[in-house]
Amino acid sequence: MSTPSQLSTNADLRILQRNMAAALMQPLTRHDGLQSRTQVDFITPNDRLSGFQRLEIYARQYWFRLLDCLYDDYPALRVLLGEMRFHKLCRDYLAAHPSTSWTLRNLGSQLSAFITEPKARDVARVEWAQTLAFDEPQKKTLHIDDLLGADPSALRLGLQPCVIALRIDHAVDHFITAMKKTDADVRSGASQAMSQAPTRAAIIKAPRLKKEVLHLVIHRHENTLYFKRLTREAFLMLTALRDGLTLADAVELALAEADPTTDWPVQIRDWFAEWSQLGWFCKPSPQP
């Protein structure tokens, strides 16, 4: 829709903003420029820059800022894919999934679903889980003593939002640990201009990412992020509880195909003692 020459109503303002946003959010050219066909008739030229060049400054800022955010949030994926493939992935992803959240923290929320290659998808899933584990809430913790005497057929437990359980097909935890990734910083959210595309230190040689079925928990403990591998049975029990099953149903589901020679009551007691000590349990959310 063409931009109104006068802005008399909020509807006029919306058209102007839609047209400008469409110009900024379309993919840049190979040389980080604005697409030549872009409508710029709503921008005044000055004695040094055309309207096109002035709008291009904002288009570059848009793309550089968002790419910078993905570079910050997915360092392991960048190492796995290499600079060029990672950069192309980010550009394709942002073109398909522009930010719909007021916070850049959520920018990568759809990235793992966007990726089709299994190794890369697993790495993206774990790095997104790290984002969640970093600042999701830690609700009031339930301790093992709180559960004593409860009826297993009626007892439901919640899993802390900052505890993320994933089944993946690659040893991403070892891959990331080998990269010596640090997780302690918050993202900068200041308002300064982005004058250039994101640059980083040269990519280190990628560690080997082994194929291995993993039941992995990414969790926060005393504000530090950790990986914890679980057995298949423990993972099934934990996720069943997270998904709202009663303790009795979770046990049944977890042990449906389990080795009958194992002393499961002892195992389960040990799991609960450890998970409770780590503060993973909270009151369940109300059933819908």
């Binding site: 006068q6 802005l7 008399s8 109503t9 909020n10 006029d12 303002l13 919306r14 102007l16 903003q17 839609r18 400008m20 946003a21 900024l24 959010m25 904002y58 800022q61 848009y62 800022r65 968002l66 955010c69 522009p98 930010s99 719909t100 959240s101 007021w102 850049l104 308002s191």
Partner: peptide, 21 residues
């Protein structure tokens, strides 16, 4: 301004200087 129709630029975009705005 910085977003429209739920799509966010994460930038501080300039305003058009009119009385209605």
């Amino acid at each position: 301004w910085g977003s429209v129709d739920g799509r966010c630029s994460h930038d501080l975009l300039p305003m058009p200087y009119t009385m209605s705005v």
